[in-house]
Amino acid sequence: MTKTVLITGCSSGFGEAAACLFADKGWNVIATMRNPTELCGEYPNVLVTKLDVQDRETIKSAVAEGIARFGKIDVVVNNAGYGLFGVFEGTPRERVQDQFDVNVFGVMDVVRETLPHFRENRSGLYINVSSGAGVFGLPMISLYNASKFALEGFSESLSYELAALGIGVKIVEPGGVLDTKFGQRSGQEFSSTSTPADYDAFIAGASAVFDQLRQSRGRATSEEVAQVIYDAATDGTDQLRYVATEDIKPLVEKRRGSSEAEYMAFMRERMTPKVG
């Protein structure tokens, strides 16, 4: 039987690319976004519908509509997310709440809404799109880091809870992809913050660090990340984590393969902004 995937955050970036790839591969696709628009051209096997991860009623309606259309959901890709950029002290609490509402609580609400369906079928797979920022910390994105670290912990723990029910959980970790709207929204969020002047030198130094990181990137694309998501959905393994882009692999390997002292010395040398 044709399998069905529900993907959040399909208006651009990884979500859009993944929806089109799954559709090309013959899957039924429930492509969800806050403001539904045309996606991937005309596909009879694609349902585009509204889902705002901060609105539980839209989650319920999108899941119900997808099941009514295709009969069953086999895979859920929790992709919707965004990143706050800026120092913690300059970020209003309301923006912090939004960051966790989208990147953590929104994922949990989608899982909560679809779990009864998966339990009933004794099958199903969650693919949660994390980030390199869920593995290692970087200056100026402490809140995004915090949300993705939380997502990683939730996903790993959930995988143990659901394994006995025949339900899988996987984590895809991309980083360094420039062809998304992620950076644009992060910039807009940063422009709305009010940061004490004491941080000016730090911010200038941190910006230089990020400029160096951008210059060294290998131009990973959303399509490459979508392929990793598709592979995770179809490889038939119980592998938990998938590093989706080459750019972040050295940092991931350093974090996971070094002693704490070695890792911190490595990161402080490269990531601590030069101030003064």
Rank of each mutant, 00 (worst) to 15 (best):
E224I: 03
L162P: 10
S192A: 15
F149H: 09
I167R: 11
Q184M: 10
A164V: 10
F149W: 13
V169T: 15
L138Q: 05
A150Q: 06
K181N: 04
E161T: 14
I229H: 07
I141K: 07
L162K: 11
G205Q: 11
S192T: 13
I171H: 04
S155K: 02
R214H: 07
S194F: 15
S159H: 07
A163E: 14
L213D: 06
A146P: 01
G175A: 06
A226P: 11
D235I: 15
A204G: 03
D235N: 15
A133N: 11
G218H: 13
L162D: 08
Q188T: 13
V169N: 08
S186P: 02
L158P: 07
G137M: 00
G187R: 06
D179S: 00
D179P: 02
L165I: 09
Q188I: 05
S192G: 10
L165Q: 11
S142R: 00
P196C: 09
Y144P: 03
V228Q: 06
E224V: 00
P174M: 05
R214D: 04
A164Y: 15
A208G: 02
G205P: 10
S216R: 14
Y144T: 01
K170C: 11
L138D: 02
P196Q: 14
S191G: 05
K181Q: 01
F190Q: 08
R185D: 03
D179R: 05
A204F: 06
E224D: 08
A146N: 02
V172A: 02
S222A: 10
G168C: 13
A206S: 11
T237D: 12
F190S: 08
S191R: 13
R185N: 02
V135M: 11
D198C: 07
A233N: 02
V169W: 10
S222V: 03
A164E: 12
G166C: 08
A150V: 05
A204E: 15
Y144M: 01
D198E: 05
F149M: 02
T221W: 06
A206L: 14
E189S: 10
D200R: 04
S147W: 07
T180A: 01
E224G: 12
Y199P: 06
S147R: 01
S155F: 04
N145M: 00
Q184E: 14
V172I: 10
Q188G: 13
E223F: 03
G168A: 15
F182T: 00
S142I: 02
Q188N: 07
E173Y: 01
T221L: 04
S157A: 15
S186Y: 07
L162N: 13
